[in-house]
Write a protein that binds this DNA or RNA. Structure first.
Lengths: 132, 132
DNA sequence: CTAAATGCAAATCATTTGCAAAGAG
DNA sequence: CTCTTTGCAAATGATTTGCATTTAG
C-alpha cells in the first residue's frame, strides 16, 4: 500500500487519479516546482484543472506527504516530503535553485530550539549566492 | 549623513518625508512587520498611501537598506538590513516569530557555497518548532 | 519651473471558494 | 445511489501600475 493509499484510507478520502498524478509529478521532480509548473507537468496527457492541483497539494501538505516552501519569487514551491530537510542555494543572478547535501546542521539546530524551549519540527535554510 | 540620505544622493532620488518615515518604522521595529503593518505604523500621524509604502520598500530593498523575507503566511516581511543575518524560529502552533542569536554558521555556509563555486551573499534560516 | 514622488483606483498574480456536473465506493 | 471531488469562473488578498496632482530640488 502506498503512502497515498494509506492517507486516503486513514482520512476517509477518495483515491483519485488526480491525487495519484500530482504525487507522481513530485516523486519524479528533482527540482522545486511551483503550482503552475506542477499543473503543467500533471496536465501533460491528462485533463486536470489548476484549482484541483491547489486543492490536492493542500491535502498532501496537511497529510505530511509533501512540503511547501515560501520562495522569494512570492510563490509557493513544493517537493516530496519524507526525505530529511536540506539546504537550498539560490543563485541571486539567475534564480537557479541548487540542492545542497545536509551539512550536519540538524542536531545543532535541535539544540538551539531546545535552548528556547521548543522542539524542532523542521527547518528551512536558503543560501543566496553569486556564481564566480 | 544617514544611509538614507546617502542612498538618495547616490541614486539621484529625492529625500522625501515618506522615505524617512518608512525607514524609521523599520529602525524602530524589533519584529518583522508585513507591508500592511508597516503602513499602519507609518500612517500613525501621517498621510501616506499603502502604494507608497510598497514603492518605498522596493526602493530600500534594491538599495540594500532593507531586507525582504518570504514568510510561510504568503506575505513579504521586512526588517532593517545592515545587521548580520540571523535565524528565525517560527512557532508552528501560533506563527510567533522569535529571533535567534547567530549560532556561528556564516563561515560554515560560506565554505559550503564556495565548494559549489559560489560566493555567499546572504542566507535565511528558519526553524519550525513546537513549544514544549 | 521640471522631473520625480504620491494617492487613488484599476490591473495583475497567486490562491481560494461556490456551485453544478462527474466520479469513487 | 450518496457523498466526495472536480472544473470553471468568480472571489479574495497581496502587490504593482497608470495617471492626474503634488512636491523636492
Amino acid at each position: 500500500m502506498t503512502s497515498l493509499e494509506a492517507l486516503c484510507v486513514q482520512r476517509g478520502l477518495r483515491l483519485t487519479e488526480h491525487r495519484r498524478i500530482v504525487l507522481e509529478v513530485l516523486e519524479a521532480a528533482d527540482d522545486h516546482p511551483c503550482v503552475r509548473e506542477i499543473h503543467r507537468r500533471a496536465a501533460d496527457g491528462h485533463r486536470i484543472g489548476i484549482a484541483t492541483v491547489y486543492r490536492t497539494l493542500n491535502t498532501l501538505v496537511e497529510a505530511g506527504l509533501v512540503k511547501r516552501q515560501a520562495f522569494p519569487d512570492g510563490k509557493a514551491h513544493y517537493e516530496r516530503a519524507g526525505r530529511p530537510s536540506h539546504p537550498h542555494l539560490i543563485d541571486v543572478a539567475t534564480g537557479t535553485i541548487v540542492e545542497i547535501d545536509d551539512v550536519g546542521l540538524e542536531s545543532l539546530l535541535e539544540q538551539e530550539a531546545r535552548k528556547l524551549g521548543y522542539n524542532l519540527v523542521d527547518y528551512s535554510l536558503k543560501l543566496f549566492a553569486r556564481s564566480r
